[in-house]
């Protein structure tokens, strides 16, 4: 692990995959370097999210996963490298512009307003140009449990339901690419499993998903591809079954 710099550009099957042709990559990061003030966080990250697939970005805390997502969503400007969306270079684009191109990011820690009701939370999404009725329709059809809770304050929902609401809000934009950061944060394993079943459903409807997750085993059941990130670099990438063995080492050492 000490000679990381000597490792060749990550052998990312997502890239060499037959569907991974340039035009069919919804998101592509090329040689992304990023820093907070003067501290370097990312040292040349290459990552591809092909159309209609789920890519899991895994790794221990502080590896730079969230920063990678923030760069992809336009929330953090990289110091080097290119961000491509559907083959078009979008370096320096504002988050709201990317949102209009069909990118939706659900940040860590539940993107909901706790003192607003479920319905009001959904109503905040009417800015995308859809009526509340349409948005509610999309949300409740995907997450029927929210329909029962529509007049309840979001803060009183269970953790899993809050996360469903956050995803429902994201779906209101009918995104082509959904970026999920630590969906499982603070949730019991059984709820996490349930949530990822819904993620899989969303993916089946044709939405590409890039997900950062600590609960690696759970997400690997859903993901088409996965990459393990350590110290600001993609250390391994491949099909989930190829990676399972490396995970424990990345997280717990040994």
């Amino acid at each position: 692990m000490s000679n990381l710099s000597a490792v060749e550009p990550p052998d990312n099957p997502a890239r060499s995959n037959e569907t991974g042709h340039q035009d069919h990559n919804l998101l592509e990061l090329r040689g992304i370097r990023a820093a907070y003030e003067r501290i370097d966080v990312l040292f040349g990250v290459d990552l591809v999210v092909p159309e209609a697939s789920v890519v899991a970005l895994l790794g221990p805390n502080g590896a730079g996963k969230t920063t990678t997502l923030r760069v992809a969503a336009g929330l953090h400007v990289p110091s080097a490298g290119d961000v491509l969306i559907a083959g078009r270079r979008v370096n320096g684009a504002k988050p709201e512009e990317l949102a209009r191109h069909g990118l939706c990011m659900i940040p860590e820690g539940r993107g909901i307003f706790p003192n607003l009701t479920v319905r009001e939370n959904l109503r905040m999404m009417t800015y995308v140009g859809r009526s509340l009725a349409e948005i509610e329709e999309i949300a409740y059809s995907r997450f029927p449990r929210l329909a029962e809770r529509r007049t309840q304050t979001a803060g009183t929902l269970s953790g899993g339901e809050q996360q469903m609401l956050a995803m429902a809000r994201g779906m209101a934009t009918e995104p082509a690419l959904l970026i999920l950061d630590e969906l499982s944060m603070g949730l019991a394993p059984i709820i996490v499993a349930e949530l990822y079943e819904m993620v899989a459903q969303v993916a089946r409807s044709g939405v590409s998903i890039l997900v950062v997750e600590q609960f690696a085993s759970t997400v690997l059941g859903v993901a088409d591809y996965a990459a393990i990130m350590v110290h600001g670099r993609i250390e391994r990438a491949g099909r989930p079954d190829e990676l399972a063995a490396d995970l424990s080492k990345a997280y717990l050492g040994g």
């Binding site: 990011m105 993107g111 909901i112 307003f113 800015y127």
Partner: peptide
């Protein structure tokens, strides 16, 4: 910040 992300202008 979240309200801004959600087009609250």
């Amino acid at each position: 910040p979240l309200a801004t992300l959600n087009g609250a202008r």
